[in-house]
Amino acid sequence: MITKEYTITSAQGIHARPATTLIRLTKSYKSTISIKKNNKTVRLNSILNILSMAIKGGETISILIEGDDEIIAADALDHFFNEELKAL
């Protein structure tokens, strides 16, 4: 399993649009991918669950990835949180 920490770099945090992009991104991998904030963890396949975490800009979250393709999935998520998110 791979665990990574990110600071959210978009002003509005993980709102509907980045959540949608994130779900679609994770769907393309076989690994089970979850997001964790404080003590709450949810699968990255439900927009309702992601939004209910109310992740704001500047907050720190962890991403947990487990599965055969976890290394390439982690790479893609790295790119999402470090690059793409700013523009969403």
């Binding site: 509907a16 649009r17 959540a19 949608t20 779900i23 679609r24 699968r43 396949n45 439900s46 927009i47 309702l48 669950n49």
Partner: peptide
């Protein structure tokens, strides 16, 4: 288009 894509995710949400 972004809003429509988000709606698709809401509608097909596994939690729902």
């Amino acid at each position: 288009i972004a809003i429509l894509d988000t709606q698709i995710e809401f509608i097909s949400d596994p939690q729902l």
